[in-house]
Amino acid sequence: MLVLGFESSCDETGVALVQSEGTRLPRLLAHALHSQVRMHADYGGVVPELASRDHIRRALPLAETVLREAGRSVAEVDVVAYTRGPGLAGALLVGAGVACALGAALDKPVLGVHHLEGHLLSPFMGADPPEFPFVVLLVSGGHTQLMRVDGVGRYAMLGETIDDAAGEAFDKSAKLMGLGYPGGPALARLAEQGDAKAFALPRPLLHSGDLDFSFAGLKTAVLTQAKKLGETLPARSADLAASTQAAIVEVLVRKSLAALKESGLQRLVVAGGVGANRELRAQLDVACAKRRLRVHYPELALCTDNGAMIAMAAAMRMQAGVQQADKRYAFDVKPRWPLDAI
């Protein structure tokens, strides 16, 4: 079975082709991605209307690229999958509209996929795929969650952020330091040159006794420190970046280890854009090795939003019998859609 997947939840247009055979893990045949970073950089963040218009221009040419690279024709596609939510409403509508129109034209079934489930299952495309059950740390620009995963579609929330997500903390702190957009990767690069102990920044909810997160207070602390530095901020920005990253990473690592201990599981999966952060990976690797725990990550190229994770999630849902594609082409999207509610 060939699954063609479309991702358009925010500022990346992704398309991919996945092949599913029997009970074996679905295999990624080809994927293509267009990032809108340059287009939104002048505005300091994503402009929803511009994002939607760009998805319209990119979706079908990317699909043609993917099919050509995989050596397949569009007539061979068995299922067309798309991101149904969560995300920007207009952007989601573009991907859903393109996928459902293509499915109708080919007389092939379609399947709407949860964006975060795509991230959660993306490590199964890696060289070291995990096994169920596991704890997943979903960490991105809009979400920071810890969940217990017992199988495809079997998710239980353990903890989540009560305000800003970790990715927001990276991005907003970077903006306060004048690092531009996208801020998270820029802050991480700058942090490599700084002293992580230079500034004593807070670790919110680190000792709360639960598995929830909070990063709004850290952002405020970074703002306060930046104001104190004043004109000396450019000279100390690397230290402030390193201290900010250290605070975020420590909270993520400590909470992840607590979730494993509380659940009694021995396997951690890290997914989402912040999962590409080198310091987070390094600290989790050390901490898990020390405790004889396993940790799995997506391939770096598949950490950010992409079509491969959508096609993969659709294939795995159908393979597990959790959901089947159908030919109902009247679609809707869910800009807000809790993962544990699917």
Results as ranks from 00 to 15, higher is better:
M1F: 02
V3Q: 00
L4K: 06
S9K: 04
L17K: 08
L33T: 14
S35C: 11
R38F: 10
D42C: 13
G44C: 03
P48W: 13
S52C: 14
A59M: 15
A59Y: 03
L62H: 12
E69P: 02
G71Q: 11
V74Y: 04
E76F: 08
Y82G: 02
Y82M: 02
L93C: 09
G95K: 04
C100P: 00
G103D: 02
A105N: 12
L106Y: 03
D107E: 15
H114I: 07
H114G: 04
G118H: 09
P123H: 07
P123Q: 11
F124M: 14
A127E: 15
V139M: 01
V139D: 00
H143M: 07
V152I: 15
G153I: 11
R154C: 07
M157K: 14
T161G: 02
I162M: 14
I162A: 11
A165F: 01
E168Y: 00
F170S: 07
Y181G: 00
A188W: 01
A188M: 05
A188E: 15
D195F: 05
K197F: 09
P204G: 12
L206M: 13
L206Y: 05
G209K: 08
G217V: 12
T232P: 00
L240Y: 09
V249Q: 07
L252T: 04
K261D: 13
S263Q: 11
G264I: 05
L265F: 10
V269Q: 10
G272T: 07
G272N: 08
G275S: 15
R278L: 14
E279M: 13
R281V: 12
R291G: 00
R294D: 11
H296F: 13
P298M: 06
P298I: 04
D305A: 03
M309C: 06
M312S: 04
R317M: 12
V322A: 14
Q323C: 03
Q324S: 14
A325Q: 02
D326A: 08
R336V: 08
